[in-house]
């Protein structure tokens, strides 16, 4: 009969899957904190707004509005697109930048939205905006995490293992989400 050393295999797999998961854990952890506070900040973009002044534009003609705006702002290229949300406003769109011209006053709101380096990419992966094969890579990572959670309980034996003080940590870790949900759903 083969003597299957399950504890040794458990330890080995836990260790190696752990190594494989380091980068993913950091990506999902950092992004998790970032998107958790989406109400307080934009985790993907730095939104910047500034207002500059040009001469008021009387014309309602598209080409004249664009011409006067780009010449006043010394912009060398034509906009990618143009839109009139209302009779007083014209919007000129450039890559990563929007110029909203208040025609009667000449106030131009310049909005730019550069992405936050590294964090943007982490969030895209974490929230699976990229779809495709990444969906399955993320699934495998999730299964790896489940495995590490379960296998982690059985690495140590004795008083610090699952039969010792380990069980109390598992109970506490289970109670926190469970009780919070009961409070959120029924008691608040």
């Amino acid at each position: 009969m083969i003597n299957f050393q399950w504890r040794k295999w458990n330890k080995t797999l836990h260790r190696d899957i752990g190594y494989l998961s380091v980068a993913m854990v950091i990506i999902y952890g950092v992004s998790g904190i970032a998107v958790n506070h989406i109400g307080d900040w934009n985790p993907n973009y730095k939104l910047s707004k500034r207002i500059v002044q040009i001469n008021p534009i009387v014309s309602q003609d598209r080409d004249e509005i664009i011409g006067q705006t780009v010449s006043s702002l010394s912009i060398m290229e034509s906009p990618e697109n143009y839109f009139r949300p209302d009779s007083n406003t014209a919007q000129l769109f450039y890559p990563g930048k929007t110029y909203s011209v208040d025609l009667p006053t000449g106030n131009v709101l310049i909005e730019s939205t550069p992405s936050r380096p590294v964090l943007f990419e982490m969030n895209q992966l974490h929230l699976n905006a990229v779809k495709g094969v990444w969906t399955y890579i993320a699934d495998i990572f999730a299964l790896g995490l489940i495995f590490m959670g379960i296998s982690g309980m059985f690495i140590l034996k004795g008083s610090t293992g699952i039969m010792g003080r380990g069980k109390w940590f598992v109970v506490i870790g289970t109670i926190i989400p469970l009780f919070y949900w009961i409070w959120y759903q029924y008691l608040q």
């Binding site: 993907n44 906009p79 697109n81 769109f93 450039y94 939205t113």
Partner: peptide, 14 residues
Amino acid sequence: DGVIVFPLEIKGKS
């Protein structure tokens, strides 16, 4: 939410 995520850089594109 989450099914499609439009990035901000597509603003102004057709």
